[in-house]
Structures are given as structure tokens and as C-alpha cells.
Design a protein around this nucleic acid. Structure first.
Length: 184
DNA sequence: TCATTGATGGTCT
DNA sequence: GACCATCAATGAG
């Protein structure tokens, strides 16, 4: 573990997916390594599960979506467009199939290149499919908070790149830390 | 500044 | 064979 960062407990993830997505903002994504990589989570998306057509788990249980139907606090990594990985954390109950996508972090320590966008977050942390199915609480990759944490101001927006999801694409399930220098 | 497009491969039908 | 929870480079305005 990287002092003074403390991993959030499994109970944090064992709650409603939208709540977890909101509360992940301002927390820290920490890769424990000889040279730790640390960033502050600034954008997430909630994929509540089988009742949401944008969630991978709504298409049913397959080999790829298996982790989504496991216990909360599991890392779900998949490849998209043949070139990028996306990093999710499984939430709620195993039956829900819910998860939260980590879309962007603000780099703090040991991160090179841009980190705004799910593909870039994975690239900057070196996250690949070997992280799939691991624990976000006990593996090298954790989400942490500091002892003196304060809650950031949050903006809700529609999710990105899910035109196929029908009415569910309108849901305000994307969350971002409010940036005083930007309107949206 | 904004819209368009090419790169690229796993997953599902 | 179609579809993708994306990004960077390009070119027009």
C-alpha cells in the first residue's frame, strides 16, 4: 500500500451503482509499484446492469461479462475498438450486473501522457486484461482516499458512445467533478 | 474550434 | 460479418 492512501473497503462498492459512480469522484486511483502511479478520479460512468441497455451485462452472461456477475469490488477490463482497454469496477450485488467505468483522472504522481478518456487512463496505468477479475481492494491497483477527504462538486451528463442503447442513452449516468473553468 | 475519418481486434450473431 | 463504453490526426471555417 502507498501511504497515506487507504484502499476503500468492499462495502463501498456493495451499494447502488449510481451512488458508487458519484462517490468515486475525488478518490484516488493508485497503482502500487516501485514508482507508484496516482491520479484523482475526475470522471466516471454508471452502468447499473441487466435492466440498462447500455450495460454489457444486459446482453446476458457470457465469458467476457462474467466478472460483472461476480462480487462487488472486482476489476472488469475489456478491449474496445481493437486498440484500447477500459477499466471498470464491479458494484452492487452479483445479480445486478452493475459496474462503474473510470473515464478520467487528474494525474498526481508517476503518470505520463494524457489521462482524460478511458483508453488513456488504462494506457497511463498500464492496465490490460491481466487486471481483469482482480480485486480493486487487495490487488496492485486500488481506489483509495486520504484521511482528510472532502466531497467535490459533481456534474451529471449523458453517457458517451452508446447510441445503440435506445431510451437509456438519455440517462444522466456520467459524472464529472465540476470544473469552474468550463461550462459543461 | 469543430467535424470527419482511419487505425485496429475481440465479441457476438 | 457487424458492431463497438476510443483516440489522434486532419482539414475546413
Amino acid at each position: 500500500m502507498v501511504a497515506p492512501y487507504r484502499p476503500l473497503p468492499v462495502s463501498f462498492y456493495a451499494r447502488d451503482t449510481v451512488t458508487v459512480a458519484r462517490e468515486l469522484l475525488g478518490k484516488y486511483l493508485v497503482l502500487d509499484a516501485p514508482e507508484p502511479r496516482i491520479g484523482r478520479i475526475s470522471e466516471t460512468e454508471a452502468y447499473p446492469g441487466i435492466t440498462d441497455r447500455a450495460s454489457h451485462s444486459s446482453r446476458g452472461r457470457t465469458e467476457r461479462t462474467q466478472p460483472l456477475f461476480g462480487p462487488p469490488g472486482i476489476i472488469y477490463v475489456y478491449m474496445i475498438y481493437g486498440m484500447y482497454y477500459c477499466c471498470n469496477v464491479v458494484t452492487d450485488t452479483p445479480e445486478s450486473g452493475g459496474a462503474v467505468l473510470i473515464r478520467a483522472v487528474e494525474p498526481l504522481t508517476g503518470l505520463t501522457g494524457k489521462t482524460s478518456g478511458p483508453g488513456l487512463v488504462c494506457k497511463a496505468y498500464g492496465i490490460d486484461k491481466s487486471f481483469n477479475g482482480q480485486s480493486i481492494v487487495t490487488s496492485r491497483l486500488t481506489v483509495c482516499q486520504l484521511p482528510d477527504e472532502s466531497l467535490p462538486l459533481v456534474v451529471a451528463l449523458p453517457r458517451v458512445g452508446i447510441d445503440y442503447a435506445g431510451p437509456d442513452k438519455e440517462l444522466l449516468y456520467r459524472f464529472r467533478i465540476a470544473d469552474p473553468g468550463r461550462l459543461v
